[in-house]
């Protein structure tokens, strides 16, 4: 005979449930945490275009980020999302300027090879990306202009002079807000790649991306999306920043710019100065 439903409320049942959940969560974590070796090209299939999400920080971080992105190819990275903290007008402005420069660079390049491109009627189609990502033909369109990038603002994790005991609440608020730029609108997909170089907001955004992968939201994990790349600041020669220490075991690739930091936690990769 089946036990009465009241037995579901016993302590031992609750404990058993907790243990089961704990084991399941641990196994899931083990499965999605990057292994000790840097993961390269783990995507299923061979993508032709990608969406990239860039987390910007205060002055110095933003400056370095745009130095890193200077050779960004808008034919491959067809949509860019820039995440800035509320009140950081400088970073938002820099993102706009970067996109503008990208547009000008493309216009110059296209003017150079006008004949060949004009024959295919390329220009008007550039803006319409996203839907036809699988077509190889799309590869050659430069995706520039206002439709190809978004600047998203999320609240600061901790404001200056904010009392310490309220920080967990504002951090949680930031975490909830961080899902918006990741999930985008119903029409857009999750980012393929998330790039950051260490502002506090980045830790929370990467946590949000990790949650999406944990629960495989919209195929984040099964389709190999939301890959994370962390680049430690060029100013860090011998020690990692706090964000770096927090993220070194979490991100898919952890890059440092000075040889002395190579191999930190068995994960840091050194590829020379990147900025």
């Amino acid at each position: 005979m089946a036990p009465p439903p009241s037995s579901l409320y016993t302590l031992s049942f609750a404990l058993a449930l907790l243990v089961t959940l704990f084991v399941a969560a641990s196994l899931r974590l083990l499965a999605i945490l990057p292994n000790a070796r840097p993961s390269k090209a783990q995507l299923r299939g061979r993508p032709t275009t990608a969406r990239v999400l860039v987390v910007l920080g205060s002055g110095g971080h933003t400056h370095e980020m745009f130095a890193l992105l200077r050779d960004l190819d808008s034919r491959k990275y067809t949509h860019r999302t820039y995440v800035v903290s509320s009140g950081d007008a400088f970073s938002a402005q820099r993102a706009g300027a970067f996109e503008k420069a990208l547009e000008e660079r493309t216009a110059r390049a296209q003017a150079g090879e006008e004949g060949s491109v004009a024959a295919e009627g390329g220009a008007p189609q550039i803006a319409r990306n996203g839907r036809k990502e699988t077509k190889r033909r799309e590869e050659r369109w430069h995706c520039v202009g206002p439709e190809c990038y978004t600047i998203a603002t999320i609240p600061r994790a901790r404001r200056i002079h904010q009392p310490l005991y309220t920080t967990p609440f504002s951090a949680l608020q930031t975490l909830l807000a961080a899902f918006h730029p990741l999930l985008g609108t119903s029409e857009s997909d999750l980012p393929t790649l998330i790039i950051t170089n260490g502002p506090a907001t980045a830790v929370i955004l990467i946590l949000a991306a990790f949650i999406l992968r944990f629960f495989n939201v919209r195929g984040a994990e099964s389709r190999g999306l939301c890959r994370t790349v962390y680049v430690e600041s060029f100013a860090r020669v011998r020690t990692l920043s706090l964000s770096g220490k927090l993220l070194v075991r979490v991100v898919d690739r952890f890059l440092v710019q000075w040889e002395g930091l190579e191999g930190y936690a068995g994960r840091a990769e050194y590829c020379g100065i990147l900025v």
Binding site: K40, A41, L68, T192, R227, D252, I273
Partner: peptide
């Protein structure tokens, strides 16, 4: 500066190349 992509550094890559590699282009 920035250092040329070869020579004294063993494995110098541009950041653009690292991005491509991670995505799988």
């Amino acid at each position: 500066f920035p250092p040329v992509t070869s020579g004294q550094h063993r494995e110098t890559k541009s950041f653009a190349a690292i991005m491509d590699e991670t995505v799988g282009f």
